[in-house]
Design a protein around this nucleic acid. Structure first.
Length: 406
DNA sequence: AACGCTTACAACCGCAGAAAC
DNA sequence: CGTTTCTGCGGTTGTAAGCGT
């Protein structure tokens, strides 16, 4: 599985697959000292691995609450949504998939990418495209980058368009390569962009008439519709511009402090999909670890509510029932018969207009336990975020006749 | 049975940025 | 303020295993 060779790198450091003995050394060290200071592992344990390798081994294979096995259909939905929003931000994506590592998701995505490209299939299900397009067009952008605040300030009166603006570093690039979703969906996006720009102008006009400087509201927000009506446009909108651009992958990047924003909460239905929090594994909360024979993989066994849901001796695989529509190009392999059915009921999507069942044929029974949450966001904060989101969301796709517009 | 292809997975590397020292 | 350490990302490689021929 691992890289061949297993020889020694420079400085006498070993490379290649990890042995059980090495794993045990690393686990013991972490149990004693906690995570971090990985370069000290070699000094204190004699383990002939560089700190970086230790960190990777721990993060991807040894740390508690890791979930192994194929992704469930729900997890795949989340990956697709998030990738459509943030691009190749594997760590951010994985932070919303408890127990999953960024490396795992990256591998999954790259494999999926190759497979679908070879088959000439789109990367995203149509409904996911729509979901993300709606949010983008609403300019629900909790990932505003402070580095580009100046660029946006140039549009203080009329904020920078979401999708394209030559002065906006986050604007669409004519030939970007990171957001295939947008390539496939640019017509809808451009329509929405046009609507948004029109709305912003109208809003600006209305504000001038009333002598206030209130910030523009998102497209479809009820208040905005009121502004449009007040401006004399009734329910109709002027003709839409026709641009062909695409979004960069970092359109919604969050260099401003990371964290979870409104959009992420919305897209992920965080009330149902607990966030992972690496701090939960830090010193002081280290669960008991035990070797699982004959595999070198560790299973968590301790007082964690999460891990206790997976009894020792059983793998945390789930499913084997994710043969969705892609099955025509994805061979059914590595569907371990020993995979345990887990309860995924509370990971179900909550986003309006969820993906049709024929895109992910979940087989009906794929379930998994929530591997635990240690969210850094309190329930109150989350509820407030959700309330704010819901007041600016289109009620449903159908209510706006999305199918007719696309 | 042997072979080739594909997939899934583990691991590595180099780089950049942030944080700690 | 410079150095060290850690973290994250993108890209890549290598191998086991499944599958078809």
């Amino acid at each position: 599985m691992a890289r061949a060779g297993g020889g020694e790198g420079g400085g006498g450091l070993k490379k290649g697959p990890w042995t059980q003995a090495e794993d045990k050394l690393l686990v013991d060290h972490v149990r004693r000292h906690g995570e971090g200071n990985w370069n000290a592992v070699r000094r204190e344990t004699g383990l002939q691995r560089c700190g970086k390798s230790c960190r990777l081994r721990w993060a991807n294979h040894l740390r508690p609450n890791l979930r192994k096995g194929p992704f469930s259909p729900e997890e795949e939905r989340h990956i697709l949504r998030l990738h459509g929003l943030v691009g190749n931000k594997w760590a951010r994506i994985s932070s919303h998939l408890p127990g999953r590592t960024d490396n795992e998701i990256k591998n999954y995505w790259n494999t999926r990418l190759k497979r679908r490209q070879r088959a000439g299939l789109p990367l995203y299900p149509p409904d996911i495209e729509r979901e993300i397009a709606v949010l983008r067009a609403q300019n629900v952008n909790p990932f505003a980058d402070t580095d580009h605040a100046a660029a946006n300030n140039a549009h203080a009166v009329l904020p920078a368009p979401l999708l394209f603006d030559a002065s906006n570093p986050f604007a669409l690039q004519p030939s970007g390569a990171h957001s295939p979703l947008i390539n496939q969906n640019y017509q809808l996006l451009n329509q929405m962009q046009g609507m948004q720009q029109q709305q912003q102008r109208l809003h600006h006009f209305a504000n001038q008439q009333h002598g206030n400087n209130a910030a523009p509201q998102p497209v479809f927000h009820q208040d905005s519709h009121a502004v449009l009506r007040h401006a004399g446009f009734g329910a109709g909108l002027p003709p839409l511009p026709n641009r062909v651009h695409e979004l960069p992958s970092n359109q919604f990047d969050t260099a401003s402090g990371g964290g979870t924003g409104l959009l992420e909460s919305l897209m992920l239905g965080d009330g149902h999909m607990p966030r992972a929090n690496t701090s939960m594994f830090r010193v002081g909360s280290m669960p008991e670890l035990m070797n699982r024979e004959p595999s070198s993989r560790m299973m968590v066994h301790g007082d964690s509510d999460v891990t206790s849901q997976c009894p020792p001796g059983e793998d945390m695989h789930h499913g084997g029932k994710w043969d969705f529509v892609l099955e025509d190009v994805k061979p059914a392999k590595r569907r371990a018969a020993s995979e345990v059915e887990l309860d995924m009921s509370d990971m179900l999507s909550t986003f309006p207009g969820s993906i049709p069942a024929d895109w992910f044929s979940a087989g009906g029974g794929s379930t998994a336990p929530s591997p635990g949450s240690a969210s850094a966001v309190t329930d109150d904060e989350f509820n407030l975020e959700m309330h704010q989101i819901m007041t600016s969301l289109p009620l449903s796709l159908d209510e706006h006749n999305w199918n007719a517009q696309i």
